[in-house]
């Protein structure tokens, strides 16, 4: 029901809040030795969903291609890794987090547009 009402935006909102969660984990662990920063790479996830570059597998443990993970999280490659093995670059993560928040807000605006359209339709204005 909600899917048909809000179209792609319901899924998009979930993806974007998921990305904010992953980025907040990076920022929280900016000082943890050996922590590897992650990100949700939209292009890669979309590629898997469309079957681009996927290897056929008959078992869950089969290798399904480079960087494949079920939750869409990929390790980000640092520009300058730290000596303690931490790959969080705090400035970069903050910039990403800010952009993720704007993306989330954009999806919210689309949703809000849908909601007000349905309300108008229901009232018959």
């Amino acid at each position: 029901m909600l899917d048909s009402l809000f179209g792609i935006h319901a899924d998009a909102l979930q993806l974007k809040s998921r990305r904010m969660e992953v980025l907040s984990t990076n920022i929280a662990n900016a000082d943890t030795p050996g922590f590897k920063a992650k990100d949700v790479d939209f292009r890669t996830v979309l590629g898997w969903k469309l079957g681009v570059g996927n290897l056929q597998s008959t078992h869950v443990n089969h290798w399904r291609g480079p960087g494949h993970s079920d939750n869409g999280e990929v390790f980000s490659i640092p520009y300058n890794p730290a000596v303690d093995g931490n790959t969080v670059e705090i400035g970069l993560e903050q910039a990403k987090y800010g952009k993720a928040a704007v993306d989330y807000q954009a999806t919210l605006d689309f949703l809000q547009g849908r909601v007000s359209a349905y309300k108008r339709a229901l009232k018959g204005e």
Binding site: L13, S17, M20, S24, I27, A28, Y97, G98, A101, Y104, Q105, L108, L111, Q112, V115, S116, K119
Partner: peptide
């Protein structure tokens, strides 16, 4: 991070208001 997440959540709550 908490502040931004809080703002996003507040806006999410307000989606149905308009």
């Amino acid at each position: 991070v908490v502040n931004t997440a809080k703002q996003m959540m507040m806006r999410t709550l307000e989606v149905m208001k308009s």
